[in-house]
């Protein structure tokens, strides 16, 4: 990070965020069992950076993403967008927040409604936020389809998810996320269901979008190599605790935390010595 950016207000800030899931046991057993998914997480994401959140399954990385797009509320702690606290937003304020913070989900086979055409899916954010009229919306959808590499846009307009491949579906999901021109996008393992050759093309698309629209990304992944390729800074999370944060290349070259070291060592590589 350059110094100039360090002086700016971060676009997203998490302060001491804790998330507990309490599962009420039945009346025969006493008390509540609670699982701590996130434990006192503090993070600051600067404008225009791609911030990587690296962790294994069950580490809590997806919960952070869901909290940021308000699918869940933290048990404790404060979330700030552009310096303003955003906990427990309701109604118009929540809608306004959501037009600024969007998400790309993990599984493109699950995140598109099978009964809606591609156009209906991508147009939804415009419709629910009452932006434009039928003609301008249509234009915007076609324009967005072409930005995400589904061109000519007219050709994909009336198709349905089952007529697209996994990679194309994820591009539709990207189009839905960027159509409102949000400031911040959470990408939750967007390529974990894809082949490597297709995934790298999607990474390229995300990089292009960042450049063109100056968007900020939180990239959630279990793949350190992908995080290194895509991200400016990364945070490594284990059991709901962030164990290390820093510039991606530095963290990977010179890890400080024992867990990070273990993670890096376990990464299969092309060493033919055994």
């Amino acid at each position: 990070m350059t110094e100039e950016q360090n002086n700016q207000t971060p676009i997203i800030e998490l302060n001491g965020v804790t998330k507990e899931y309490s599962s009420k046991k039945n009346f025969l057993s006493k008390g509540e069992a609670s699982i701590i998914a996130l434990n006192n997480i503090s993070l600051a994401i600067q404008k225009k950076e791609i911030f990587g959140l690296v962790g294994q399954s069950g580490s809590g990385k997806t919960t952070i993403g869901r909290i940021l797009v308000k699918l869940e509320e933290p048990t404790k702690g404060i979330i700030k967008l552009n310096g303003k606290p955003t906990n427990n937003l309701k109604g118009r304020l929540l809608k306004n927040y959501r037009s600024k913070v969007q998400m790309i989900f993990q599984d493109p086979y699950q995140s598109l409604n099978p009964h809606l055409s591609i156009a209906e899916t991508i147009i939804e954010p415009l419709v629910v936020n009452r932006i434009g009229n039928t003609a301008t919306r249509r234009e915007k959808v076609i324009e967005t389809l072409e930005i995400v590499g589904l061109s000519p846009g007219q050709e994909f307009f009336h198709r349905y998810p089952h007529q697209l491949s996994g990679g194309q579906r994820q591009r539709v999901a990207v189009a839905r996320a960027i159509i409102l021109d949000p400031e911040f996008i959470v990408a939750d393992e967007p390529t974990s269901m894809m082949d490597a050759t297709i995934a790298i093309q999607l990474f390229q698309l995300l990089l292009d979008i960042r450049k063109k629209f100056k968007m900020t990304f939180l990239f959630i992944t279990h793949n350190l190599a992908a995080a290194k390729y895509l991200c400016d800074r990364i945070a490594v999370i284990n059991n709901g605790v962030i164990v290390e944060t820093g510039i991606a290349d530095k963290v990977i070259k010179n890890p400080q935390n024992a867990y990070t070291k273990k993670l890096i060592l376990a990464q299969p590589g092309f060493n033919f010595k055994n």
Binding site: S165, I198, Q201, A225, K228, Y229, I264, G269
Partner: peptide, 20 residues
């Protein structure tokens, strides 16, 4: 060429592979 490893730095080539 498109496989990401911890050692790869910037030498990734983006292939133009259509799916299956």
């Amino acid at each position: 060429e498109s496989f990401l490893t911890l050692d790869s730095n910037g030498d990734i080539k983006v292939p133009e592979i259509r799916e299956s």
